[in-house]
Simulated assay, not measured.
Amino acid sequence: MRPLAEFIMRGRMQAALVVVGATALPLLFWLGAAAGALVLLRRGLGDAMGVVAWGLLPALAWWYFGEPRALLVLLGTLALAVVLRATTSWTRVLLASVAVGVLYGVTLDAVFQEPIQALAKELQALLPQVLQGVQELGAEEQARLHSLLVPVLTGLLASLLQAGSLLALALGRWWQAALYNPGGFAREIREMRLPPAPMALLLAGMLLGPNLGVQLAMLTPLCSVPLAFAGAALLHGLVAQGRLARFWLVGLYVSLLIFMQLVYPLLVVLAIVDSLIDFRGRSARNNGAGPANGEG
């Protein structure tokens, strides 16, 4: 995909063409978001807005026809790109993604409330079959469980968009490193690690959110996304150090597609433990290429 990145960086017209074309095509909105992120990371917000403004047209058209993902992912990716360009810290980007995810959730709840409630009712009817212990709960516990369905479902949908925005930003950052500083993106990903304090905040959001309010239940899936990304980064770092074989990465991404419900929580647990222990060690972070932007 490097030739595409080179085409994007040839000029504003080429970049706008990619952003508009990818956003207009079904299921390729993430590519348009990544192209916009590349322009923003390299040239700044001013130049990026001139390009992304054209991409907003097809994104708004998709919104009009009931498809919100193109617009939300485009704007969310750009917001995260601003954070990455200003701080060059993936830790802050991961934390900022939770705020972006909350905005996604609020937007979905406000604009698409009826479809989400209809889906929640269907899930409510299936709960006794999926969770055998539901019928043994008291009336109050069952009512609380049912009241959590809508916010949790909203959070799950928002977390998918949150993860999509992070992946689009990662693609844009990889393009930037490939063009201007080969190896820089790999170094950033291998070093990605959540310090104990941010990890504790995310863990508290996952565990305590539903107890603080029904609507805050959406924080559980949203706070898990940064931890899962940090867990995947841990495996990349261990493979780079030679402490794990490369087939572990292949197995990770294949199993994520097949056994998401099992592998995803494992990545979250790995990130939590790594935050406390630091498996990769501090010395490994003193070597390697410079920042992926190629400017420092």
Rank of each mutant, 00 (worst) to 15 (best):
P3E: 02
I8L: 09
G11D: 14
R12F: 04
M13F: 14
Q14P: 03
A15M: 09
G21R: 00
L25W: 11
A35E: 05
A35V: 06
A37T: 06
A37S: 14
L38G: 01
V39Y: 01
G44W: 13
L45H: 04
L45R: 10
A48I: 10
W54D: 07
A61L: 14
W62C: 06
W63Y: 10
F65K: 06
E67A: 06
P68H: 11
L75E: 02
G76F: 11
G76Y: 13
A81I: 05
A81V: 11
R85E: 05
R85L: 07
A86W: 08
A86E: 14
S89W: 02
V93Y: 02
L94R: 03
L95G: 03
V100N: 11
V100H: 07
G101Y: 09
V102P: 09
G105Y: 00
T107D: 04
E114W: 11
P115K: 03
I116T: 15
Q117S: 11
E122L: 15
P128V: 09
E136A: 14
L137I: 12
A143R: 15
R144D: 04
S147T: 13
L148C: 01
V150T: 14
V150E: 03
L153Y: 05
T154N: 13
L157A: 13
A158T: 10
L167S: 13
A168V: 11
G172Y: 12
A178C: 12
P182L: 12
P182H: 09
G183Y: 10
G183L: 12
G184Y: 12
G184L: 14
F185S: 01
E188Y: 06
E188V: 06
I189Q: 05
E191M: 14
E191F: 11
E191Q: 13
M192Q: 08
L194V: 12
P196N: 07
M199L: 15
L201D: 02
G205R: 01
G205L: 01
G209C: 02
G213H: 13
V214G: 08
Q215T: 13
A217Q: 13
M218Q: 10
M218D: 02
L219K: 04
L219Y: 10
L219S: 00
T220Y: 04
L222Y: 05
V225M: 09
V225S: 02
P226W: 00
A228W: 01
A228K: 00
F229W: 15
F229Q: 02
G231H: 03
L235P: 00
H236N: 07
H236S: 08
V239D: 03
Q241A: 09
G242F: 00
G242T: 04
R243Y: 10
A245Q: 13
V250E: 12
L252W: 03
Y253D: 06
Y253F: 15
L256K: 00
L257S: 10
I258F: 15
M260H: 08
L266H: 09
L266F: 12
V268Q: 02
V269W: 04
L270Q: 02
I272H: 01
I272L: 09
L276M: 13
I277N: 03
D278M: 08
N287C: 07
A289K: 04
G290F: 11
G290N: 06
A292T: 02
N293M: 04
